[in-house]
Design a protein around this nucleic acid. Structure first.
Lengths: 199, 199
DNA sequence: TGCCCTTCTTAACCTACTTCAAGGTACTGA
DNA sequence: TCAGTACCTTGAAGTAGGTTAAGAAGGGCA
């Protein structure tokens, strides 16, 4: 009876109460994996076989463009899910990379096992649907901000949206997330703090 | 028994077979609405009360930024769904506008009625989940292309992804969708066709 | 047929952001 | 304690894409 799995069960039980049978399935189906800082858990060109629930640590998901530049798409910390849904659900190879940047523990589940869990507890379906919806809404907001606003206000948005993770994120990762170079990000920050001091 | 609703039922039955009872609910719950070219079916600041299935015609969804510039996020043609999921599901006001740009007929459903339909036919849940997933994957791809590539290759991607709709879309709408001004889009096109002629 | 109105294109100039290069700062480990 | 390395900042020069303004090219309609 792993204490690790209990963290996932507690997380799920915030939304629905899980029958003992489902809890058992979760303990069987979710595999505990550990990663060291720097390690990749998914590489471009592979199939994404696992959906991952982060117990502790931190991950970033990024693409590498034709000039070998990295672009961060998403981060994941405690109690977040991370994986490439496109590759996971559609059995295609991924364009994404996922790298651990703080030593981490995750619980990983295959597609078959995830379906097994959802079948055993239909209430979880609505939870997962909601997670999906939220994640879709977040990516919609992301598109809006990439299309409709400049770097300065994307930086402001980031500060407002993720204040609690700022200190765990290297500047270069944030720069890449909001879509500018580290050099320009440096200037953005300076400008921003000068302005907010003035007002 | 509206022939209009039959189009929706046919569309759904490509994936799941619907019991007569569910078909009846669909006929009752989906409201037929008609729009003329130019008309708005959703305005920034309103609540998105309806999820809309497009029978015929064409729509675009866009935001207006602080400089009153429009940015197209998505289009919708026959047999597509359109609405703002964030506003629809979370009962918040929307930042989006949806405008008809070819005379159109849609079937609209409220959140309560959509839930009623899903309850009556649980198989539809997985269909809707899949639609969500696809729509999430599409927006993910959109972020990837906005972040990871320049305007020229976003234009190429658009040509490859939506060849069948090109002739129904004014250049300025495509320009806005890929995230450039109409003027710059003009240059892109010229450059693209010169290159492809040369090779 | 011709006119108005919207859309598209072209060109000159402008700016937000990138690139490149250099120096500063701060962990990390022997 | 010191060196090595990764990270952050600064500045100068370059570029992708925006702005403005004007003309060209359709397309609906009298």
């Amino acid at each position: 009876m792993s204490i690790k799995h209990q963290q996932l069960i507690n997380y799920l039980e915030c939304a629905v109460s899980l029958p003992e049978e489902t809890q058992e399935i979760i303990r069987e189906c979710f595999m505990l994996r550990r990663f060291k800082k720097g390690q990749y858990i998914l590489n471009e060109g592979e199939f994404c076989r696992y959906n991952n629930f982060v117990l502790q640590g931190a991950f970033r998901m990024f693409i590498v463009d034709e000039n070998f530049k990295e672009h961060n798409l998403q981060f994941a910390f405690n109690n977040w899910w991370i994986g490439d849904p496109k590759s996971f659900f559609n059995d295609v190879t991924t364009r994404l990379n996922i790298q651990c940047f703080e030593n981490a523990e995750v619980l990983s589940v295959t597609k078959a096992n995830q379906e097994k869990m959802l079948e055993s507890c239909p209430e979880l379906n609505s939870l997962f649907r909601e997670k999906f919806r939220n994640s879709m809404i977040r990516s919609y907001d992301r598109i809006l901000s990439l299309i409709g606003s400049n770097a300065q206000s994307r930086y402001k948005d980031f500060l407002e949206t993720y204040p609690q993770y700022l200190h765990r994120l290297p500047n270069q990762y944030i720069a890449s997330y909001i879509g500018v170079t580290p050099e320009f990000f440096s200037k953005l920050k300076k400008e921003y703090w000068q302005q907010s001091k003035a007002s």
